[in-house]
Design a binder for these strands. Structure first.
Lengths: 233, 233
DNA sequence: CGAGTCGTTGATTCTTTTCAAAGCCCGTGG
DNA sequence: CCACGGGCTTTGAAAAGAATCAACGACTCG
């Protein structure tokens, strides 16, 4: 391994949605755009589709993913209220977007987005910052998936969800999972069995309670944090 | 697994450097900026450092990586001549950058970059496209690392290097590896032993020749491509 | 020539996946 | 109200793939 003699600052890993306090100049453009509603499991778009619009999530949540020809799936993020989707600059979508539950979005035509980026410096800046955050999120997930064990990955996800919970004014100790085991597995690059077993292990070790398969109560945050930090016990 | 009934278009996986034909408006800004030279193994910057500049590589190559507290390392890209580094919009560097060999760069002060993005629409657009490409590269690598086997990952890397070779006017069948086994391992999230064994296996199976550990000749491109595509034999 | 770095190979271990089966939850309909 | 069915989750046993530990070989630079 490479030895680096400099101190390292770790960003919060797995910050699912790098959503800033909404209300930027870009937000305003979206809020006046056409609305759209999706049922659970509906796709907003598929990989390869022409990119007609960029989107702002107003309510609900979606998962963003890619698949290999044989069906293996990699989720690289979940988008929640306040998050932007498909901000990148390409003519066709580079991934799929599917609603996890009832979802409402605002749809800004792609050419308008490009025009806004050019003509409105403030919106352009927010576009730039948001894209940067998406990039950092992707790289963080990459190093999580590439370097961490199953337990470390799941601990990181639970803490990220807890932080999100807290940010939204909910109890940071009780996490209502918005996604299934399969979604978690495909996000963390594990199988559902491994995810399930890791949940069970966390419960047995007293790190969490599992009232229900979708309701996690954190019992030992310290332990989860030290796992997620990746210090290799 | 999720069943999607739509056709899927795969982007080229592992396009290491999404470098456009240089000569954009952004390039011009950099070319007139201060130059800097790094020896092999020198760091350009570390994670957490204040971001003073963004960079354009003029000659040589660097690797961009993150490390966990215990030293595990994830390389998420290599930057070669014509590539931009640290274009993202944050006050401190989110990763490390280290020269693989003798490297020359142009350094544009961060505040100038921001100003250029705001005031020069054409440069702003190139900034936007380049950042988008970096984002797609990160997501591609994520799904490679998350979903593919060791052989599939290495095949993908070799083909990406071959394409780069070709793009630069070199023989697309002979690849001069610019990085060590450790770099490859940390890029593909494998160990050096697994990388080495996979090279050996490719050689034994007649997919490549290994004149030297850093000189790969492609003998069966079809087979490599079908591996890299990820169709699961 | 010798030290050191990098790469290869072998034997073994470990984590995670795969395959298989059973349990649970929840909505539907009798 | 309870039985039935289907999807999701859990659990177990076996297998596979990659990591780890260890040793050796090749090449480079003093």
């Amino acid at each position: 391994m490479l030895s680096v003699t400099r101190p390292q600052m770790q960003r919060e890993p797995l910050d699912l949605a790098a959503s800033q306090p909404s209300g930027g100049a870009l937000d305003r453009r979206f809020r006046s755009a056409a609305a759209k509603t999706l049922e659970a499991r509906d796709h907003l778009f598929f990989e390869g589709d022409d990119k007609s619009h960029a989107y702002l999530v107003e309510k609900g949540s979606l998962c963003l993913y890619k698949t290999l020809p044989d069906g293996r799936r990699q989720i690289f993020g979940f988008a929640h209220a306040g998050d932007f989707i498909a901000l990148d600059c390409s003519d066709s979508h580079s991934h799929n977007a599917r609603a996890l539950n009832l979802t409402r979005l605002r749809c800004l035509p792609a050419h308008v987005l490009k025009e806004v980026g050019r003509s409105d410096p403030e919106a352009g800046l927010q576009l730039y910052t948001t894209l940067s955050e998406h990039l950092m999120a992707a790289r963080d997930l990459l190093s999580t998936v590439g370097q961490r064990s199953a337990a470390e990955r799941l601990a990181g996800l639970l803490l990220a969800l807890a932080r999100r919970s807290e940010r939204n004014g909910f109890d940071p100790w009780k996490i209502q999972l918005p996604m299934t085991r399969l979604d978690i597995a495909d996000f963390l690059s594990l199988t559902i069995e491994t995810v399930s077993r890791t949940f069970t292990k966390f419960r047995q070790d007293g790190l969490i309670d599992l009232t229900h398969s979708t309701l996690v109560t954190i019992r030992n945050r310290k332990a989860l944090e030290s796992l997620a930090a990746g210090e290799r016990d």
